[in-house]
Design a binder for these strands. Structure first.
Lengths: 230, 230
DNA sequence: AGAAACCTTAAGGAGAACCTTAAGAAAACC
DNA sequence: GGTTTTCTTAAGGTTCTCCTTAAGGTTTCT
């Protein structure tokens, strides 16, 4: 079910490479060691990588060349790890497309923190819509369990209320008209009574308010509809 | 017309803040200084930011709290800039949602390189082939969400104002007469009071002006009508 | 300079849109 | 089949936007 995250480790020093791989494994990602520039290129051709850890000083081919190769096509995230940690090389690397730069000797925890941070950033757009969690402010919906948690308290919503909240949460800030709501919540193309929406909205708001009196989640846009503030 | 990229600089030291703003300007981005945690929060509420530079040591509110606020909702990119550069704080920051960490004293070039690197990465994610959008200068209308963003600021428009703006935006440079406006915005063939249009136009212009005082979006063509400058 | 078209601001009334509460109808549950 | 929950309808109240009017000002054209 979980998707494997593949990380290519390009580093000629055997010990360091293994250490890096160990760090990655510990974070539950899948490392692949490459010990030279040419080897790295083969791996890069072969498949897509979620992230590349790249040493700048390599036999056969410099890290800069590989970096250029990577950034020339796919926007694969790259973290440079190098002993050559002058400001110049740092800046040059970042400018030529690297996402981060870690100096050698490195701190184990920092490496994994930076890897996770970058992956977090790059994964954001890949989040499939089938991801079964919706979050906004302190509202959390588990779509699979159909459970709503607001400000730490579980909400007991009715079917309609739940459907409305899920719709609003699916696109925060988007204004949903009453027709939108009827189409989505009631599965009806024709317009029912507007007041039906009003009542459910009122009930939903009451429950949200009870869970967190300090927030006003749903906004009314006069003449247009409703929207969830984000 | 290039789109403006807005960067919030949260740093209590006046000199450093100004220096950072200068760096940002030099890279052709648009900086906004905030000198305290509370001030930062106000700016964060007010509009969307493409990136936040955040000092950890602030009066009134710690950077950690602000970081938590930011990451709790939108995935706004954050770079921490701090003198507290122990491994522990570094790692803690990254793990709690920061995208990068720069130690003080910092290298000017490195700051801009890291900013550009992170923006490069986050811009890619935004390439969501989103729905029907209208764009002109720095006005953006999401027709589906009925959301209007001008110069990075969300606009709260009434139904009439929204309809007028959408009409103008649908054909920049085209001159819309008052009859056109009545037909399209009011769904009425007959002419209402001309002054009604005046008043709505005035209100709309006010809201646009508040969002961006430097632009004059709507032009009056004497005896003919109005048009959106493109 | 004078006239016409347009801008701005404010205030009040009208009416639409919305909120809330309660009670009967429908559906779901046991 | 009866009970409970949920949905809808109805009614009365509230709020907000729009429209209109009006007055004083500005801009543009002749």
């Amino acid at each position: 079910m979980e998707q494997q995250i593949n990380i290519l480790v390009v580093e000629d020093n055997n010990d360091i490479n293994q250490l890096l791989c160990k760090i990655i494994k510990k974070s539950n990602f899948n490392p692949q060691a490459a010990y030279s520039g040419t080897e790295a290129l083969i791996y890069l051709e072969k498949q897509k990588w979620d992230l590349v850890l790249l040493d700048l000083m390599l036999p056969g081919m410099t890290g800069e060349e590989i970096l250029a190769k990577i950034t020339s096509k796919d926007p694969t995230p790259v973290i440079i790890i190098s002993a050559k940690d002058t400001q110049q090389t740092k800046i040059a690397s970042l400018r030529s497309g690297a996402d981060d730069f870690i100096s050698k000797p490195f701190d184990v925890e920092e490496v994994s923190a930076r890897i996770e941070s970058l992956l977090r950033r790059t994964k954001q757009n890949k989040e499939t819509p089938s991801s079964n969690q919706l979050t906004n402010k302190d509202i959390q919906i588990d779509l699979e369990a159909k459970m709503v948690v607001v400000n730490g308290t579980k909400l007991a919503l009715t079917v309609r209320e739940y459907a409305i909240l899920v719709l609003l949460m699916s696109s925060p800030n988007k204004i949903f008209s009453k027709s939108n709501l009827f189409a989505s919540v009631w599965n009806e193309s024709f317009q029912g009574d507007d007041n039906t929406v009003n009542v459910h909205m009122s009930n939903l708001r009451n429950k949200l308010f009870k869970a967190n009196p300090n927030e006003d989640y749903i906004e009314t846009i006069w003449g247009m509809g409703y929207r969830l503030k984000s």
